[in-house]
Design a protein around this nucleic acid. Structure first.
Lengths: 171, 171
DNA sequence: TATTGTTATACTCTATAACTATA
DNA sequence: TATAGTTATAGAGTATAACAATA
């Protein structure tokens, strides 16, 4: 009964069993960053996916939208409306190559828009680097790259369970 | 003309200007992990958000769904159908506290389901730790936590732009 | 047979506004 | 006035299936 439930915050003490979960923390961090970057890019009429498409076309002029989709992990079916939107905005030009393939290039306006997007992305990344520290950025990128790889052989022999343990319950 | 476009892969050489972008790499890593975990949890009829809700209720019995929503960054409006679904599955019980607040608790079946979910989450996290290395996990969690904080004062005075620089174009 | 591009569709997640009942 | 919970709705993002045209 002597709980102290109504003193400081919401309830007596909030327990967060998610602080040590890599998957969850990664998801929250990603959502936060994409929200911030999305708000910034929204000011120039671009969504994050559209900005990355412009970056890829600029770096690989003449590529197909299937190439871009593969690089970004976006299904071909979902690339169609994305590229159509960029063409409707006059940012991307398309020329037949194959009869079935179309070569993508940035228009002059597309290059101008991309320059603006680059500035916003650079500002965002600079903010992240300020939080992470100079070496933190490289360490984080390295760890994310390691995550992408399958575990090294033999590493699964000692399963290190680290999920919040069941707390004592029912007395 | 001597391009070599049709030799090895798709085109001559694919350039990826996104490899150094923390925001993008974090987003891709998060999507990959959530896809894997979602597939695993799907086998026991739970989505990642539902599993985290069960974890939070178990760690904070008697909490309100507003508490859970705040902790998970889920809007109240979106918590309603989530909790309703968990109650319909018989995993969560609810008792009025306030007249406007309801105390959430896991049912016996909810605890059983959570135990299964915990095992799947632990296996997933163990796989990640195998990729990251023993210390890698802690370093990654530390960096993600640093990311959450606003940049330290005075760190933004030297904006380190590191977005893929415009490559030579038009010849 | 495999690939490009397209359409249609559905499902999840998220965001907003509006409403009620209560503190 | 602020909070808890609900409903409705709209917008992204993503996933699958199917199709036509081409390689």
């Amino acid at each position: 009964m002597t709980d102290g439930e109504h003193e400081s915050g919401r309830s007596a003490a909030w327990v967060d069993p998610l602080t040590r979960l890599v998957g969850y923390q990664l998801r929250r961090a990603s959502a936060m960053l994409m929200g911030e970057l999305g708000a910034a890019l929204g000011e120039i009429g671009l969504r994050p996916a559209e900005a990355t498409i412009l970056l890829l076309i600029d770096a690989n002029p003449g590529c197909s939208q299937s190439d871009v989709g593969r690089a970004l992990g976006i299904a071909r079916a979902n690339m169609a409306p994305l590229v159509a939107g960029l063409m409707r905005q006059g940012l991307v030009d398309r020329a037949p190559v194959d009869g079935r393939s179309q070569a993508l290039e940035l228009s002059a306006e597309g290059e101008r828009r991309l320059a603006a997007a680059r500035a916003l992305i650079a500002a965002h990344e600079a903010r992240l680097q300020a939080s992470l520290g100079e070496d933190g950025r490289d360490r984080l990128l390295g760890l994310l790259d390691a995550l992408r790889q399958p575990p090294a052989a033999g590493s699964m022999l000692e399963p290190v369970a680290d999920v919040p343990p069941p707390r004592a319950k029912t007395e």
